[in-house]
């Protein structure tokens, strides 16, 4: 093709596209720079063609995310990912597809009131709601926000299942009927005792306050716990037992969230059991940021101020239902 074959309009368009991509990368590098933005606006002027080229580029960049090969992506937690999936059609990615459907289910779980989708939870709480229930045997069940439990007592055992969320159990002594709480594929068995179980995206944490429990895990010998100990069971089937404070009372019972180097993505999952608007971390670089310390579960402005001060995490309210965290 010779130069003459190219109509002037085409050539001009191409150069606009090139300029647009240059602007895009510059602005992406320094999104908060007012001077740069002003220069960009001067370049764009009133020209709808320039604006269209820039938007076409944004769209292309957005679409590229859908093609992400699994290995090149940081895996964010399912709840965070529930919205923008990046699945592909090829057969060997069925696993990813399954994972994404799971994410979709999680999303549904978030959206629909519990009664629509749960296998008949006996006790459930919504976002920001906590509840104490006295059970038939005198045991007390403390439900954290957005949590659900089924209860099934008979003459041989007291069987409960934590469907999702977090609960603290104060078990009445009854040597003849063991008290068993299932959470995902774990079962915690107690005689007279108090313990807390929390389900998060990648983990089940069982923390013992007093007495003793045995935690049954698939393909393993039962794991005994002493008071104050916490057992973490992750999706890749690894177990970690750590020592907490001697007499553990779950912080959520006091309207607090106690954290020890937990990734921000996970922290936000826990916060969303208590807060409206829903909080989302939009900046992937922040997902793994470790958070330590104590955050309030009933005071949004303080929470946001703390995040901003200690992690340099900013927030933006989008409408009334969404709060974005970013750098």
């Amino acid at each position: 093709m010779t130069r003459e074959d190219l109509t002037p309009a085409d050539g001009q368009r191409d150069s606009i596209h090139e300029q647009a991509s240059q602007w895009f990368f510059r602005l992406r590098e320094r999104p908060g720079d007012p001077g740069l933005l002003a220069q960009f606006e001067r370049w764009k002027g009133d020209d709808p063609a320039k604006e269209a080229c820039y938007l076409e580029l944004l769209l292309l960049w957005d679409e590229l995310e859908r093609l992400a090969p699994d290995s090149d992506k940081r895996a964010p937690p399912a709840v965070e990912r529930a919205g923008p999936p990046a699945a592909t059609r090829t057969g060997h990615r069925r696993g990813l597809a399954a994972l994404l459907s799971l994410a979709m289910l999680c999303l549904l779980a978030w959206l629909l009131p519990a009664r629509y989708w749960l296998p008949a939870a006996d006790y459930a709480t919504g976002v920001g709601e906590t509840r104490v229930v006295e059970l038939a045997d005198g045991s007390r069940l403390h439900l954290n926000g957005r949590s659900a439990v089924t209860v099934d007592f008979d003459s041989a055992e007291r069987r409960l299942r934590l469907l999702y969320g977090e609960a603290f159990f104060e078990v009445a002594r009854d040597a003849a009927r063991p008290f068993r709480v299932a959470a995902r594929d774990t079962t915690t068995e107690a005689i007279g005792t108090a313990f807390n179980i929390r389900i998060t995206d990648g983990r089940v944490d069982t923390t013992l306050t007093e007495g003793r429990v045995r935690v049954h895990l698939p393909d393993r010998a039962p794991q005994p716990l002493h008071a104050g100990q916490r057992l973490s069971w992750t999706g890749d089937h690894s177990v970690r037992v750590s020592d907490g404070p001697g007499h553990y009372l779950p912080a959520w019972k006091q309207g607090l969230l106690a954290l020890d180097r937990q990734p921000l993505a996970e922290v936000v999952e826990l916060l969303n059991r208590h807060y409206r608007p829903m909080i989302r971390v939009v900046d992937p670089a922040l997902w793994q940021t470790p958070v330590s310390g104590t955050l309030p579960l009933d005071d949004l402005p303080t929470l946001l101020a703390m995040l901003e001060r200690s992690l340099a995490v900013r927030h933006s309210a989008i409408g009334e239902q969404l709060l974005l965290l970013h750098r």
Binding site: L27, L58, P84, M278, V282, S316, I318, L324
Partner: peptide, 11 residues
């Protein structure tokens, strides 16, 4: 919501 999360990443 997801739309605006995407938009928030666009300069």
């Amino acid at each position: 919501h997801d739309t605006f999360i995407r938009l928030s990443r666009m300069p």
